[in-house]
Simulated scan of single mutants.
Amino acid sequence: MTALLMVVVGLVTASPASAHHPLVSGVAVCDEETGLFDITWSIGNSERDKVMTYTTDRGFSGTVGAGAAPVTHTENDVKHGTYTMRVDASWPNGVTASKTATVKTPGYCEKPDVKVTPAGFDVQPPTCDTDGVGTIPSQPQGVSVTPEPGTYGPGTYDVVFTAQQGFVLDGNPSGTMTVLGATGYQSTNPEAPCYQPPEPETKVEPRSDRRSDCVDVERRTWEVVYEQDETTGDWVRTGIQNDSGWVHVRNLTLKEQVARGCIDVEGKQKKKKAEVSSPAAPAPASTPAPSGTASSVPTAVDAGI
């Protein structure tokens, strides 16, 4: 809607003994598209039987017919203030007259704020193993936002949209942007999201063995690994680990060599490296599952080594 503001003050100066005079007025109208005023000046003729010729100090000139409607001239985009126009008129009978009109624009003509719609923030939810992402997009002209446009990781952010000068928000999506971290996996409810079967329970049973020949005593240690079957609850051997291999412990004494028949009673060696104990063991044979929690003490250790 346009606002109409008008103040007209007229001062007439005419030649003696004459009623001839120009009719002068002005109207100021606010142009809300520009925020400035348009002034329309009106010039009329007081005489019904004579044509009036005129000039003005605002650059307008022309004629007004006898008894004719006033002519108009418009000045566009003028600022708030007081404006005057002097009209100098003459008629064919030699009479001249002048009149000045004043237009004052009370108040201000302000350009209305332009409506602008902010681009609201968006939040992508997290997955089992990736964080969510919050996005504040670039804004249209006339909109400011804090935090600045960009992507944001897990956290809570107060997002505030404001209109710049000359603009007004058409809707305001300001609010709290909450970005969640990865949810992780759960092993309690198979029907719920991010379910991951629990790792099977594991038990470890230490083992050891020894062997000797006519020279060395060697020892080997390892661990047997069992996992519990989720369906049956049985313990199932799944392999071995931490196998040390055969490791030299000590040399046999002379007495042990004689006892093993490695040398005769006269002290002469009869055999060299003849194995008289357990052979080099391959991977341990299948062993029944432990009945309880495995002990850290080997189950087959030669206490004499």
Rank of each mutant, 00 (worst) to 15 (best):
K270M: 07
V87F: 00
P206F: 05
F60N: 11
A280I: 00
A294C: 15
V301S: 06
E230I: 06
V225I: 14
S295W: 07
D129C: 01
G62K: 08
T2P: 07
P149V: 05
V78A: 03
T53N: 08
T287G: 01
V217T: 08
V179D: 08
G10S: 14
W235N: 10
K271E: 07
Y226H: 10
V249L: 08
Q141A: 14
I263H: 09
G94K: 06
D213S: 09
K99I: 11
V114I: 15
Y83G: 14
S98N: 04
Q228P: 06
T162K: 13
A281Q: 15
G107R: 04
A19V: 14
V265F: 12
M85H: 07
K203T: 02
E201H: 09
V29F: 03
G142Y: 04
T56V: 03
G292K: 10
Q141S: 11
I136A: 03
A69F: 01
T74H: 03
T176F: 00
A97H: 06
S144V: 11
V64Q: 01
P22L: 04
G94F: 10
T135Y: 02
T56A: 01
E230W: 08
V29P: 01
T55A: 09
F60R: 05
S61A: 14
C262S: 00
K79P: 13
P284Q: 05
V51T: 15
C109E: 09
T156S: 15
L254D: 15
T82W: 04
T146G: 05
P92R: 06
Y185K: 12
L5Q: 08
T105V: 10
A68P: 10
S291C: 05
K255D: 14
G239E: 05
P16W: 02
K111S: 04
P206A: 12
T102R: 03
K255Q: 14
E256P: 11
T151S: 14
M52L: 03
D31C: 00
V123M: 09
K79I: 08
G67V: 08
A280Q: 03
G166S: 07
A68C: 10
V64W: 01
C262K: 00
P298L: 01
M6A: 10
G184M: 14
C214E: 06
A69L: 05
G107I: 07
K270W: 01
A274S: 03
V247D: 00
G10F: 05
A3Q: 12
